[in-house]
Design a protein around this nucleic acid. Structure first.
Lengths: 223, 223, 223, 223
DNA sequence: TATGAATGAGGCTTCATTCAT
DNA sequence: AATGAATGAAGCCTCATTCAT
């Protein structure tokens, strides 16, 4: 009886595990296809076929196509959070480096999530998860912000609104990612990998104090 | 007889003008709706309704939905070309400023065109126009390139592959545009306009010689 | 004054002539395009463009696209009528030869008209003209019929319902025309022209008395 | 357990059968409507409505409207193949009789398929199936050809290019089928069924040696 | 629970015909 | 009379989601 009970529990446990695994398989398949084919060409059916399950099964795990995508967004943001967490412990510029490296190491992925988020931003059926995503991102931002402030205080960064420092890093990373996918540049920039390194380098140094000329511009923080 | 002839010509002329005007109305409506609703939510029918014409009328002016979009792309690129032409006459940094200002002055528009181009890039039905677009852009790029080279020669810009300078400007502008649309940032960066100015400022100075630390990185030009 | 009047009449006359000529031009263009492109690919616009007139002009001459096509049908049938008229004066087999030659000399045209007629057969807007067409054809048929009867009487043709003789000639001509357009046969029958000659030959002799074996079949006329 | 398994398999089997049945229902509905209304008036929606299924369902079974039609073509040609196979075993004229009977027994169907094939012939989306169709037909043709050759050798058929014999049979059958649909003839030929028998009879005897007069025509095989 | 057949709203495009100039 | 811009019905096809088994 005891063995029976145990095995029953075990079986149930195994089932739960399988269920979880399948969920992950769906997410992996979706991500793979999204990167390979673009956001507009992936259908629920193609995801199901790619992992040999029925289309209906996907709807046992996710309430809509959108929910698959938000989940991907959340997972991605969590990874970034984890990477930053460590680097933010001291207030060095290390976090900036991590940030750039994280985003630029897989430009296709990064851009995909940008696009995905746009699609979902005003979809009421995933509003809740989008809110969770933004919360996560706010925490990352606040961590970086704190670091930026500290570096402004010690004179390492120019004294402007810390949001500007963050924003410009975001923008440069974002732009580099877009550029990566632009075939027009692919034919023009010879060594794309070297270029991304260059971007990181520039990005990390971008806000250093004393390097810009427009010292009296309106956006300067009033000391 | 002569007046009659004249008025006949005039009438024909008027007709042509009206036709052109309608074409422009379609383009304007398309642009307006694209910016307001996003690329995926605009239908041919909605464009037609927006200016109170029949769906079929649009196909008198454009062979496909895609052709409307390419036309918008071309018009935009031509405007940029005109703006740059002037500034590129001397080889100062003025062109860089123009470039940033042009792209950042209407971020919604700029981003829209980015997205549009992606959609059309491999659409065989507009391949020809896309080629024309790329030609135009290449000429802009070459103009900027020449200016960059000159500024490297006089020591004003760091001596790396000129494509890198161009690329990083493109990327920063691109990223700033994306950021502009990110509601997450909208809530965070207080004065968005000031931020864009900051971006321009940083962008223009980004590649100045002697301001970065990573002097021995692989991407440095061998002197 | 008289000259003035004359020239006025002349001008009016010329105008009428031009109008007629234009009508013929429309018909010619339609026929040409129909043969070149197939019945389903010809549009009213393409006809107008082909002769450099406005689309609307066509509707000054014909009330609908269908009316253009019926007119073509009628003209074709009239030509056949004229050709037969002569040959039917004596009651020799000459008419049968003329019939085959007429239909097989331009197989594309013949088949086109077959198709056109099908399209129009139940179009109420051209019912009247279709009736006229059938009347014309009936007169041709009756002429042939009379000849057939005579040849049965003199023992030159087998004694079956004359309609059968007519029908089988029609069918063979029709079939040969279809075959002419079948690419499957084009690759198979080496000398298409020779084949059509063979068809004519067989067709003319098809109903000769005393050559078939099934003498007691149900369709035999009871003598 | 065993019963459970069995019933599971049975259920799956049943499902497959139902799917097949529906596919056949679509084909049947399409055929019925095509014959009743003509090739140009049948829409995908009308087919769906006719068997009370959704428009989209049809696209689970066929990739395009064209694929429904090719399937009909293939099924038809296969039936003919089966019928001929038997008759071609000996080299008598039996196959010719079968051929005529097959085509003339359902003239509407035969003509429809002719028309359908024309429509699809250059549709790239069904090129593969059209090729299969032609292969099937070529095999039928070759079978008949062999029989014809044999009958020429034994002096039963006139010594002309065997393709001519085949072609003329095809043409006569084709023409008879066309005639069957021509309302002009419907009013004229009293007993249509008897007429078709007459056609068969004539067709089978058409090429018999020694019955034509034009013995020296260019198309004659040089003995 | 897993399945995949069924659904139908929604999008793009064509073209005969009308009508104001 | 000649024009050609405008129209909109009609057709094909896609795909997220539902639901019976």
């Amino acid at each position: 009886m005891s063995t029976h009970l145990t095995s029953s529990i075990e079986r149930a446990h195994k089932k739960v595990q399988q269920f979880r695994a399948r969920e992950q398989a769906i997410l992996d398949a979706a991500l793979e296809l999204l990167i390979a084919q673009g956001e507009d060409r992936v259908t629920v059916e193609s995801i199901a076929e790619h992992i040999n399950i029925g289309k209906g099964t996907i709807y046992k795990h996710f309430r809509s196509k959108g929910e698959i995508y938000v989940q991907l967004l959340l997972d991605y943001e969590k990874k970034l959070t984890n990477s930053l967490q460590e680097a933010l412990k001291d207030s060095s510029a290390a976090a900036a480096r991590i940030y750039f490296e994280f985003r630029l190491s897989h430009p296709e992925r990064d851009r995909l999530f940008q696009r995905l988020e746009e699609k979902l931003r005003y979809d009421p059926s995933v509003a809740e998860q989008i809110a969770a995503l933004h919360e996560l991102r706010a925490s990352n931002r606040d961590g970086l912000n704190k670091m930026i402030k500290h570096r402004i205080d010690i004179g390492a960064l120019e004294d402007v609104d810390p949001a500007f420092h963050y924003g410009i890093c975001w923008a440069l990373a974002q732009g580099a990612v877009e550029l990566w996918h632009n075939p027009f540049f692919n034919d023009y920039v010879g060594d794309k990998q070297a270029f991304l390194e260059f971007v990181s380098e520039v990005g990390i140094n971008m806000g250093r104090a004393g390097i810009r000329s427009g010292k009296n511009a309106s956006y300067k923080a009033k000391s």
